[in-house]
Design a protein around this nucleic acid. Structure first.
Length: 564
RNA sequence: UGAGGGAUAGUUUAAUGGCAAAACAACGGACUCUGACUCCGUCGUUCCUGGUUCGAGUCCAGGUCCCUCAGCCA
């Protein structure tokens, strides 16, 4: 089924997995997992991890689990476990019956903690949070051992059991691993394994009032599920010795943690904390605002799962800190939609064109190709009449060099219809604004070509005024006006770089009647403009489109250099 | 004299010790009933210094710069 393009470059993770397969480290098996915390929406950065986790497993004939890392009941919500599943599925991946939760393992984790206490490898500490921090030392100075570090195993067992039973208040005791307070790696300075949290958990309810920390839960969850390769971002590199320590001390099956660099994208932010701020401070209209880099935002914007997967393939996987140019994301969308999106004519900023020599009440229908890249997509009929709308920017009274579009005395082609020549311009006497343009058409050019094969430089899209549908079109630009939103003056933050023009809503657009059947979520190429998706806000009364990405615009570039 | 990690075109990622490559971006051109698409071309002291070698991005030594870690978050 997979027609291997063989152009896919290798990466260090594939090499490590292949090496393990060759040495038989995991019996040739590959079993990965995608482990989101259900405390927010997934974004493209997660897509990179998802594609890696599910992709590597599929590539080597293995499996990938979906596991919610739900060890902190005060931050996690059911709403997020649903949106996460929806997003992973939409991206095109299937965990089949392997949907797990770290909370599924709370009993086992508790028993293992007891085992570590019995082995003298864990103890109950009764220092306050502040004291623990002080005792931890600093990056350059070693920590000090807690005065509670050498409690007897019996006492530890008793206290831990009473922690579980709910005898103590939040923050009064924690269970800690007994490792090395002088380690250069802070994670090894007797890390906290359990804290008391009198809070209801979204799945276990009030069964527990002590909850395991990430470091204690993650590796063991991997172990329980028989994960072979546990991929995570490089921030966890310092945690690997601890990941290994728990597994070794417990003497259980030991997966391999491998770290890779997280995705950064120009002109956007990719951290749950910052995305949450954008939402809560109303800089955007929710998690699925089409300007958001969340998967739900990209989906609403019009991105296809295929284009996002292609993007994730192309950016590669490495350990370097990097910032990927958002232009690459846009490119993969254009490439995908170029092959698949039906072409349609839509006039965003209408300018009325009256064709003086065209019969008053005549209507013709022209056959228009749906997609020149794919003949199988067929054609449709588009009505034409005496008054049409064209794009305001396609007419200039005083055209500069290299302007190929309509201007006084100039002939252009109306796509798939007729050649027209501008003969007059009607302006508002007060404001000077152009109200309408008058043209004549050449009946010989019917369908868009003439017997004499004469060339016209410009071909314009158009919509018959009498048949046009009204639509709202939302144009999006980058959410931030700087490639690095964090590049701000002292005392300021990334919100200072928010692009005030990231959303432009056009409410008087005219689109061709074929769009009456456009279903929410469906994607089109508006000829000469870009790719657009029908927004969920769209209705029969009022069509609403989102611009997913514009077409490359050479003319805009020429204009820019002309201005200089 | 804390620990760990990283450095290859503008960007991202490749390259059993054997001609430094691809994609994106930019720029120039061809084509065009989308100024789209497509096609062609241009754009490099592999962080530095030395060493090993017939041959080093790759191996060795020393250095420089950047990132991460001091939550009872994940």
């Amino acid at each position: 089924m997979t027609t291997e393009e063989s152009t896919v470059p290798s990466n260090f993770i594939r090499k490590m997995v292949e090496e393990d397969n060759q040495t038989g480290k995991f019996g040739g098996q590959v079993h990965t997992r995608f482990p989101p915390e259900p405390n927010g929406y997934l974004h493209v950065g997660h897509a990179k991890a998802i594609c890696l986790d599910f992709g590597i497993a599929a590539e080597y004939g293995g499996l990938c689990n979906l596991r919610f890392d739900d060890t902190n009941p005060v931050k996690e919500e059911e709403e997020f476990v649903e949106s996460i599943q929806e997003d992973v599925r939409w991206l095109g991946f299937d965990w089949e019956d392997r949907l797990f939760y770290a909370s599924d393992y709370f009993d086992q984790l508790y028993q293992w903690a007891v085992q570590l206490i019995k082995n003298g490898k864990a103890y109950v500490d009764s220092l306050s949070a502040d004291e623990i921090r002080e005792y931890r030392g600093t990056l350059t100075e070693p920590g000090k051992e807690s005065p509670y570090r050498n409690r007897s195993i019996q006492e530890n067992l008793d206290l831990f059991e009473r922690m579980r039973a709910g005898e103590f208040e939040n923050g009064t005791h924690v269970l800690r691993a007994k490792i090395d307070m002088t380690s250069g790696n802070l994670n090894m300075r007797d890390p906290v394994m359990y804290r008391i949290l009198h809070a209801a958990h979204h799945r276990t309810g009030d069964k527990w009032c002590i909850y395991p920390m990430y470091d204690y839960a993650h590796g063991q969850s991997d172990s329980i599920e028989g994960i072979t390769h546990s991929f995570c971002t490089i921030e966890y590199e310092d945690h690997r010795p601890l990941y290994d320590w728990f597994l070794d001390e417990l003497g259980v099956y030991h997966p391999r943690q491998i770290e890779f660099a997280p995705l950064n994208l120009s002109y956007t932010v990719l951290s749950k904390r910052k995305l949450l701020r954008l939402v809560s401070e109303k800089h955007v209209n929710g998690w699925d605002d089409p300007r958001m880099p969340t998967l739900s935002g990209l989906r609403r914007r019009g991105y296809t799962p295929e284009s996002i997967r292609d993007f994730c393939e192309r950016i590669g996987v490495a350990k370097n800190e990097s910032v990927v140019d958002i232009a690459l994301l846009e490119h993969t969308l254009r490439e995908d939609l170029n092959k698949r999106a039906q072409r349609v004519m839509a006039v965003l900023r209408p300018l009325k064109v009256v064709i003086d020599n065209y019969p008053e009440d005549q209507v013709e229908e022209f056959e228009v190709i749906n997609n020149p890249e794919d003949p199988d997509m067929g054609s449709r009929k588009v009505p034409f009449s005496r008054v049409v709308y064209i794009e305001r920017e396609d007419f200039l009274e005083d055209p500069p060099k290299k302007f190929f579009r309509l201007a006084p005395g100039r002939e252009v082609r109306l796509k798939s219809a007729y050649y027209i020549t501008c003969v007059d311009v009607v302006k508002d006497e007060q404001t000077g604004q152009i109200l309408e343009v008058h043209c004549t058409y050449d009946p010989e050019s019917r369908g868009g070509g003439t017997p004499d094969k004469r060339k016209v430089r410009g071909t314009l899209h158009w919509v018959s005024a009498a048949h046009a549908l009204d639509a709202e079109v939302r144009l999006y630009d980058y959410l931030f006006s700087k490639p690095d939103p964090e590049n701000v003056e002292e005392g300021s933050d990334f919100t200072a770089n928010l692009n005030p023009d990231s959303l432009e809503s056009l409410t008087f657009c005219k689109v061709e009647p074929d769009l009456a059947k456009a279903a929410p979520g469906s994607r089109y190429q508006f000829l000469r403009q870009g790719y657009f998706a029908v927004d969920p806000d769209s209705s029969d009364e009022k069509l609403v489109f989102n611009r997913a990405v514009s077409l490359r615009d050479t003319w805009a570039k020429i204009q820019k250099t002309q201005k200089k």
